[in-house]
């Protein structure tokens, strides 16, 4: 690892003050992506500000028609939360399949969402459920939040505080994990929320997570796997690499979407 200075913050205010001290600082939450990145010499922040121990960022609460999850809440806690399992079982089940149990004991929702890995699971749930990402400065809708590969609408020194997920009438997530890395080669989250039918795809987009509006229109009239027959994304918008060519991913998106719908019927 390249050298850095480490600071532990005990409150959001303290984290803000620590971030202000240097202009090459980075937030550390669970570190399940950041630490491996540092080990591989793929990042060299001058300062790490650890927000993983801020108690006020670790919670899951029901707030009107939303379930709100604190940014530093580890995946294992989210996956097993009784309220979440009851209100949005599809989300609890998605979180229970992130990484492996050791990663889930440490990795956090805030870290996953802020990193916006194109193969991460959480972004698909955020986009399909129409979640709101609340930071120390503002609220950002998931539609505006995920802007590209590892890119988000977050500005320098902005801290995610919590993510609010609307409770859907129906929802399901299906992923086809890469057999080696277990990251999503393709993951599809389908949901019926107040805003309508939403379908989000992770693992496959050349610009990261994206919505399949053509599938959404088909499902509005007919919520069935058959309604998705033949609906494929354009291969130009998909990743193509040694793990899967674009046309293979396009096919998988259709299959995963059908399986997700079938889960809810």
């Amino acid at each position: 690892m390249y050298p850095f200075t480490y600071h532990k913050a005990s409150s959001i205010e303290q984290a803000q003050a620590l971030l202000d001290v240097s202009n090459d600082s980075k937030l550390l939450a669970g570190g399940q992506t950041l630490i491996p990145t540092l080990k591989q010499h793929l990042a060299s922040p001058g300062t790490l500000v650890d927000i993983g121990k801020i108690e006020s960022l670790r919670f899951i609460r029901v707030e009107k028609a939303n379930v709100v999850i604190g940014a530093a809440t580890p995946h294992a806690q989210v996956a097993n939360d009784k309220n979440l399992v009851q209100k949005i079982p599809a989300l609890a089940s998605l979180v229970g399949k992130i990484g492996d149990p050791h990663v889930r004991n440490v990795g956090t929702i805030g870290g996953s969402v802020a990193n916006n890995d194109p193969a991460a699971d959480y972004p698909a749930a955020c986009l399909a459920l129409g979640a709101t990402i609340r930071t120390d400065k503002r609220s950002i809708s998931a539609d505006d939040f995920f802007t590209g590969l590892f890119e988000t609408a977050l500005v320098e020194q902005e801290i995610i505080v919590e993510v609010a997920f609307p409770v859907p009438a129906l929802a399901a997530y299906e992923k086809f994990p890469n057999p080696a890395s277990r990251y999503a080669l393709v993951g599809v989250f389908v949901a019926q929320v107040e805003a309508g039918v939403r379908v989000a795809v992770t693992g496959a987009g050349a610009n990261g997570v994206f919505r399949m509006t053509e599938m959404e229109s088909a499902l509005v009239n007919d919520w069935s796997a058959d309604a998705l027959e033949g609906i494929l994304p354009s291969v130009d918008s998909l990743l193509s690499d040694l793990h899967g060519a674009a046309d293979y991913r396009a096919h998988l998106i259709n299959v995963m979407a059908k399986r997700a719908i079938a889960q809810t019927c």
């Binding site: 480490y6 532990k8 570190g31 630490i35």
Partner: peptide
């Protein structure tokens, strides 16, 4: 809880 000690700074375990 089980964690990977190679993916955590000693400082985080303070």
């Amino acid at each position: 809880r089980a964690v990977k000690s190679c993916t955590m700074l000693a400082a985080q375990a303070d």
